[in-house]
């Protein structure tokens, strides 16, 4: 065939197009964050004060943590609605651990929170992946079950700030070079999981499963094991989020993390993770969380009634989904017209 003669080493046009769209997506969120920040600053200059910026970074840190785990699950075309409840239970259990062991090292407390979350995630994972019950139903059930267990365990006795060692509270309130520890931990998590998602085979399996589940089976992907893994990790990260919640607020009632699942899913979707799986990045989800929180704070700073917060978040969600559809349709059109041949590309 004559096509053989054509050079095969030209720049892969397809790559640049796709990366452009992806980068564009993450860039778009960054621009939105800058825009919200800038406009609010013009109206209320104190918005850019050190304390305010710290709050802007620390505020969404826990949501970012949960969004990272949620991304893993949503990429596989599933959903984890139980993250808010898992956070609440883990926060309380970690606090309770301090009540009984006041000198527990910080790291062990974090690990304990993770372990509690992991346990919940494992239950989710087993039921979804191996018993093949739809994730929506399973995690909705777990949302209520875990919240119920939480209420029983708490039994009206809240964790009080006095029961939490100062070293642990410092973790929630302190900062390094002006950057809150919480945000640094979240950032480290995003960097770590983001790297893993790009670099290792099992992580790529998650995308394959979400993109085309039947093809994933035919490609020899261990679908059940991977879905199980995604839920387990989502649980563990929600558990870590719970421990950090304890560090941030030093007090835990049975309502900790109530309704967080929707904030988390909103952040993930705004961040460009396809709700039907197969595409999206951890970084995007984190930026989505950052954007939603920045808007929240901006509305406060601009003295807009807090009633507007949720409406704005909801609108943003719709805009994000509409934008996704638009980009998907455009991209598909471009890809189709462009054809796959290098000579056209």
């Amino acid at each position: 065939m004559s096509v053989i003669d054509q050079p095969l080493t030209t720049a892969p046009a397809g790559t640049s197009l796709i990366t452009k769209i992806l980068r564009f997506r993450e860039l778009a969120i960054l621009v939105a964050i800058a825009l919200v920040f800038g406009l609010t600053y013009l109206k209320n200059p104190s918005f850019a004060s050190g304390a305010s910026v710290q709050q802007m970074l620390a505020g969404p840190s826990i949501i970012i943590m949960l969004a990272v785990g949620e991304t893993l699950v949503i990429v596989t075309r599933n959903v984890d609605l139980s993250v808010g409840s898992v956070l609440g239970l883990s926060a309380y259990l970690t606090g309770d651990l301090f009540v009984h062991n006041p000198h527990l090292p910080v790291i062990l407390a974090l690990l304990a929170g993770m372990l509690a979350g992991l346990t919940c995630g494992v239950v989710n994972g087993v039921i979804v992946a191996y018993a093949r019950v739809p994730a929506l139903v399973v995690t909705l059930g777990m949302l209520y079950i875990i919240r119920g267990v939480d209420a029983i365990v708490v039994n009206g006795v809240q964790i009080q700030p006095s029961q939490i060692p100062q070293s642990f509270v410092n973790l929630g309130a302190g900062a390094f070079l002006g950057i809150p520890y919480l945000f640094l931990i979240a950032l480290a998590m995003v960097a770590l999981v983001g790297y893993v998602m790009r670099t290792f085979r099992p992580a790529r399996d998650l995308y394959a499963i979400g993109s085309n589940p039947e093809a994933a089976v035919l490609a020899g992907v261990r679908v059940q094991r991977r879905i199980f893994g995604a839920f387990a990790i989502s649980g563990a990260l929600a558990g870590l989020g719970g421990a950090l919640w304890l560090a941030e607020f030093a007090t835990v009632a049975s309502t900790a993390g109530l309704g967080y699942e929707f904030v988390v899913i909103a952040a993930v979707v705004v961040g460009g993770v396809a709700i039907f799986g197969g595409s999206g990045t951890v970084l995007g989800a984190a930026l989505g969380a950052l954007l939603l929180n920045t808007i929240d704070q901006a509305l406060v700073a601009a003295r807009v009634s807090s009633f507007w917060n949720q409406a704005v978040a909801g609108m943003l969600l719709l805009v994000a989904i509409a934008f996704d559809r638009y980009v998907a349709v455009r991209a598909e059109k471009i890809l189709r017209v462009q054809g796959a041949r290098r000579d056209n590309a």
């Binding site: 892969p12 046009a13 790559t15 598909e332 189709r336 000579d343 590309a345």
Partner: peptide, 10 residues
């Protein structure tokens, strides 16, 4: 000569 960096979509 397919371009390997392209998405399979489309």
């Amino acid at each position: 000569p397919l371009s390997p960096g392209r998405l399979a979509r489309g």
